[in-house]
Every structure is written in structure tokens, then in C-alpha cells.
Design a protein around this nucleic acid. Structure first.
Lengths: 287, 287
DNA sequence: GTTCCGCATGAATCGATAG
DNA sequence: ACTATCGATTCATGCGGAA
């Protein structure tokens, strides 16, 4: 287990071959899309995308625990005025490889950049494909419950949305069932549509997903101490989310520059975690 | 052209064989999903879905104008804990048939079906697949612009998502009356994510999709006087939207009961259109 | 005439039970 | 073993009646 809590430089396909079977609880990744990030990843052509990805997916399948989950963030490019079909083909090929295609979540990007094309609107969503090894997998639905819709607003007018979320997280940290029942009236389970803004303030690294996105799936599919793998870790967003949540992480990237950035980023997280714990302790004492 | 503004009883595959080539401007339809509506449509098994649909799609391709668009509302069901792949396979097969897969819109159904399962959240979205015959097709983007006015400003504030969506739908709801309110506001183009609630408490006829859904695409892809075809017209929602917007319609359905409902429904639209025009005239004068 | 509350109602899915 | 049916679960919406 000397690979945990590390950012590893190398091709994930080769790096993972050194890993034992069934050691990862969650794989969350956003691989380079076809022809995107061409300078860093060599630019995989759309028509070669499936054959490029499949041997990597085979390693993912091997290292994932039977109860684990693989979440793949991907979206097909437009090629010659059409959406390319490599994502469709990838799903079909991965099923032949042994994966189960359990679900497709939609990430609705609320603040997609403005722009105009004559025959196309702005693309405001991406796929989050959920794959599993078996029908039975770990899922902790209570960890991602959300405040209920408008109809209960009059009841809890005094409480702001953030307060309610904070209360909920406090409850989850381990109190009696009575409290969660009382609270159950205000919290509901989410759907498979996730509304999150993209992060545009990140200047160091090229447009990655927001921290909230891996956070949501890590809460949903892992418990404290579990191991989260991102084989295309880039600037380290997935690893940061995992560490913040008290999970262990493994990040792999083929680009030396990204590995350096991610390592530096991970190094300063521990203090932030402590800081938040202190603040929570203080406000908890006051209220 | 004796087929326009009619609801025709029969299998669309056979009925359309009597139609000339290149006569339809927009096909908008929501075919029965696999294993759904088994009582009315006979229930197509998931594994036979593609072969069931393809010959119909071939007729759609023939009757559609070169500048026309085909919008297909569909969603795969869960089979043995997995999302079935018939929609993916259908896209690949239709491309081989000659269709271009231009875009995939997401219909976010805010009031999705309730329920709780150990390994799955509620399904709150459906696909709206856009197919075309050629790269150049008619698209009238200005017809579906939304005002940036009130709701876009609050976008960055802490207003809840539901509030934003409600404001948006409030603006869209008017065909004549509210248009005057739009004038003078800053307008922005929408994205490929569409927020609409399903209509679940319609006593007379339970429609598969809300009237606003075909309305949006008819505005986007057709002009006044164009012909809109729905080969699975059901209770007639698409035809109603087309007629309301001053387009001509062709509805086909294999179920006699639905054809009767749709015909009765279409018969009472003309008065309603006049009524709204009168109201728009009145309020337009006042405001 | 408003506002508010109660209620029925969905393109659903899982697991158990029955044939 | 494999298919068919049924109950349990759950939440946003719009309607109608009441305050």
C-alpha cells in the first residue's frame, strides 16, 4: 500500500500494472477529450479514442474493488458539424470488457461561457458515466441529500440554505436517528442531474472541473479512509477533494508539469482541513 | 398536400410511404420507449428496439426536407440494474442510415418521478436527439431567446435554482401577452439544457411531454406556415403546439383511441388562439 | 380577489413473492 | 431457473376548495 496519498508521474496504463487487484474504492476521472489538451497528451484523434482508452479501462477494472465504482466525466466533441460517436462506442466497448453501465448523470454547467454559432447553442452539460463491476456496490445516499424544494420554504423561512446544509452535515457526523428523522422532512435525495458552475478563476491550470464535482461523487460512493484514484489527475482536483473529505487518494498523470502542480497543491491541504475543524469547533460552541 | 393539418390513424411507417419526398420541415416525436406503454403500443422489447425503429427512421429521412430537422425525445430504461444500450445503438445505426447526429439537448425534468432505491437516484432527464440530413439546416435562434433581465442578474446571487427556473418558465409561458414585456430587455441565447416540468395533473389527456417542449423546438426550427410532423402523435401535444404557433401539422398514431383524443383536442384550438389574440390586444393596449 | 393548504398524480425501479 | 405481477418507496406540480 505504498501508493496511497501520492501523485505518481507516468502513463496510468503502465503505472497501474504494478497495483494489486481490487484495491481501489472509487475511480473518478476526466480524461483528456479527443483532440483536447493536444500539447500535453499528444492529442488523441476521435477515431482512435476508443482503442486508446480501452487498455486503460482494463486496468481500471482490475484494480477496482468489486463493490467499487468508476465515474467517467466525458463529452463528445463536435466534428464536421456532428457530435462524434466515440463516447457511445466507448460505452458499448466497455460493456464487452466486463463493465456494467449503471447510470448516466448529467452535469449541468450553470455558467457556461457565452458564445454564438449559426447552428448550435452553447454546450452547458457533460456526461458523468457510472460504471460498476457488479450490481451490488457501495452507495451512501444520505451523504449527498439536498434541501427540499420551495413548498417547505415557508416552514423554514428563517434558516438559510447554507445553514440547513451545515445542520445536515453536523447530523451525519453521528447523532441519533431521531434527529435525522426530524430533519428528514427538510432534506430530500438528489436526482441524476447535478447543477454546478464551472470554475473560471483557476489561472494555474487549464479548465478543470470544480472541486464540488468530485466531492459529490466521493461522498456518494466512499466512506472515510477509502481510496480514490484519478488516473488523469491533472492539477489534482480529485485528490484535493478526497483529502479534504478524509479519504486516501492516488493521482496519476503523464505530464511532469501537472504532477508538480498537483503535489504542491496537495501539500497545503492539511492546514486548511485543520482550520475548518477549528472554525467548526468555535461556531459549534457558540450555537 | 392533402395530408396537412390532419391526424391520421395508422402505422407511421406505412402511412408515410404515401407521402412525397422532402415535404416536412420538422419532425418532433417521442416514440413509445422500450417496454413502456405496452397496453397501447404493444410494448417493444429493448433488444428489438433498434430494428423496430430503423425502418420508420428511413421514412422520416425520406420525407424530411434537406433543410429540415428531426428531434427525437427518448430515454433508455434500466434493465437488470443497467441502463440499456438501445439508444446508443440507435444513434450509431441511424448514422449508417444517412442521418447526421447534430446535437443532443438535455430536457431536465424538475418534477421527476419519485421513489427511492438502494443503488440509484431518481431519473430527472431525457434526451432530445437532433438529427439532420445535411450540415446546413434552418435554425431560427432568435425565436427562443430568453431575457437576461431579472433572472440573469440574480444568477450569481444565492437565489435557489427552482426560483430561477420558475422565473424562466414564467417568461416563456406567454405567446402574445408577455411578448411586450420582453421588448427593450437584453436577450441571450439559451443553452442545450432545457428546464421544464412534466405535466402530471392534466385531467383530459396525459401528455408524455409538456406543451412547452415541442413549442420550443418548433420555434427554433420552423417558420410560420412550415409543416411539423409527429409520427407518434399520441394525445396531440406536438400538433397542438404547431397549430398554436401558426404552423401546419401532421399527426400519425396507430392507436384509435389516441387519434380520437388528438382530433378532439385539435378541434378546439382555433377558438383558443383567437381568444389569446384578443387578450393580447386588450392588455397590449393597456400596458 | 388573493393566498394558503391539502391532495392526486406521474415515460420509475427494486426486491420479494407467486406461477 | 426464469418470467410475471405487486407493494413500497418518494417529491415537484397544479388544481380545487377554504380562509
Amino acid at each position: 500500500m505504498d501508493f496511497v496519498d501520492r501523485i505518481i508521474l507516468g502513463d496510468c496504463e503502465q503505472v497501474l500494472k504494478e497495483f494489486p487487484d481490487n484495491c481501489i474504492d472509487l475511480i473518478f476521472t476526466s480524461p483528456p477529450y479527443a483532440d483536447q489538451r493536444a500539447n500535453t497528451y499528444g492529442g488523441v484523434k476521435p477515431e482512435h479514442y476508443v482503442s486508446w482508452f480501452l487498455p486503460k479501462a482494463e486496468q481500471f477494472l482490475r484494480v477496482l474493488k468489486p463493490t467499487g465504482t468508476f465515474v467517467l466525466n466525458i463529452k463528445e466533441r463536435v466534428v464536421d458539424g456532428e457530435r462524434h460517436t466515440y463516447v457511445m462506442e466507448l460505452i458499448l466497448a466497455m460493456r464487452k470488457q466486463g463493465w456494467l453501465w449503471t447510470e448516466e448523470f448529467i452535469w449541468h454547467k450553470k455558467n457556461s461561457y457565452p458564445g454564438k454559432w449559426p447552428n448550435r447553442f452553447r454546450d452547458a452539460w457533460e456526461r458523468l458515466l457510472q460504471f460498476n463491476k457488479h450490481r451490488k456496490f457501495h452507495m451512501y445516499q444520505e451523504a449527498v441529500m439536498v434541501p427540499v424544494g420551495d413548498w417547505a420554504k415557508t416552514r423554514l423561512e428563517t434558516l438559510s440554505e447554507t445553514d440547513r446544509i451545515r445542520d445536515e452535515s453536523k447530523v451525519r457526523s453521528g447523532f441519533g436517528k431521531n434527529v435525522s428523522n426530524w430533519l428528514g422532512r427538510d432534506m430530500v435525495y438528489p436526482t441524476n442531474v447535478i447543477h454546478m458552475a464551472t470554475e473560471c478563476s483557476n489561472r494555474n491550470h487549464s479548465a478543470a472541473f470544480p472541486l464540488d464535482l468530485p466531492t459529490w461523487f466521493i461522498k456518494l460512493f466512499t466512506q472515510s479512509g477509502d481510496i480514490v484514484l484519478d488516473p488523469f489527475v491533472g492539477s489534482g482536483t480529485t485528490a484535493e477533494a478526497a483529502k479534504m473529505l478524509g479519504r486516501r487518494y492516488v493521482g496519476i498523470d503523464i505530464t511532469e508539469e501537472y504532477v508538480t502542480i498537483a503535489r504542491e497543491r496537495l501539500a497545503v491541504i492539511q492546514p486548511r482541513l485543520l482550520l475548518e475543524a477549528k472554525e467548526a469547533y468555535k461556531t459549534g460552541g457558540q450555537k
